[in-house]
């Protein structure tokens, strides 16, 4: 399978006054097309920073990030915006839907920043709505929907542009366990049926269990990288070897 993400020795260093803090301290990893990866780690482990870099919202201080063969770590802000628009989808913990904007308009949002909207895009919207069970809710506003429905809308928005990579940052953090399960099933379904590559950030092990590979970060470094079948409920306390 094709390598969709290649991170090579990525550093992200923040300067706080005189002190330099390395949020990412030499992370290298490879994610192949169609994978479902969970990134775990305690707060401050650098998982949010990694997510921002993977999501092209931020550029690494040092190191190389290739997305679908493009070295995006060298892209300008505008080029990164275009990459986000065409190749990435985001699902956030707090849904981040535009309030007072209908469901359908929220889903269409990425498309308005494109030069041209093709017939395929509009067909895609209708398909998304059907798949995610949002039929009949098109004209509703986010505040009229349940948390689960809102997250489904966010997922629809994330995949409306047929992204190479779907990034989910604690997508179940604001949901109860039944709805969490529901949303995770939607994500696994998308991964399984449509082959969408998903990178999921979570601190809940049972949510990580939906992924087929779990990467644990600690202090800005990859602590472990294991297939989730071997993954047992408590976080492994024994240090594992880092993948090259």
């Amino acid at each position: 399978m094709q390598d969709i993400i290649i991170l090579k020795d990525v550093y992200k260093i923040y300067t706080m006054g005189e002190v330099e803090v390395a949020a990412l301290n030499g992370v290298s990893l490879t994610i192949r097309k169609g994978e479902f990866v969970a990134i775990m780690g305690a707060s401050g482990s650098g998982k949010s920073t990694l997510m921002n870099i993977l999501g092209c919202l931020d550029s690494p201080t040092k190191g190389k990030y290739c997305l679908e063969g493009l070295e995006v770590s060298r892209f300008s802000k505008n080029e990164l915006a275009e990459i986000r628009n065409k190749k990435l989808g985001f699902v956030f913990q707090s849904f981040n839907l535009l309030s007072r904007t209908t469901v359908i308009e929220n889903i269409e949002l990425p498309l308005i920043y494109r030069k041209r909207i093709s017939k395929r895009d509009t067909d895609n919207i209708h398909q998304m709505i059907r798949i995610l069970g949002l039929d009949g809710l098109q004209k509703h506003y986010p505040n009229q929907l349940s948390g689960g429905q809102q997250q489904r809308v966010a997922i629809a928005r994330a995949i409306v542009n047929d992204p190479a990579l779907l990034l989910a940052d604690e997508p179940t953090g604001n949901l109860d366990s039944a709805t969490s399960k529901d949303v995770m099933n939607v994500l696994s379904g998308l991964n399984h049926n449509r082959g969408i590559t998903i990178v999921l950030v979570t601190h809940e092990t049972d949510i990580a269990g939906y992924a087929r590979r779990v990467i644990v970060l600690k202090d800005g470094k990859v602590l472990s990288d294991t297939p989730s079948q071997t993954f047992t409920t408590p976080l492994p306390q024994t240090p594992c070897e880092t993948t090259p």
Binding site: N78, A81, R84, N85, K86, N96, L109, R157
Partner: peptide, 16 residues
Amino acid sequence: TREIGIRMAVGARERD
């Protein structure tokens, strides 16, 4: 601000 962040996340450029 948040709306602007969302728009940027889905690919709005500075110019947009």
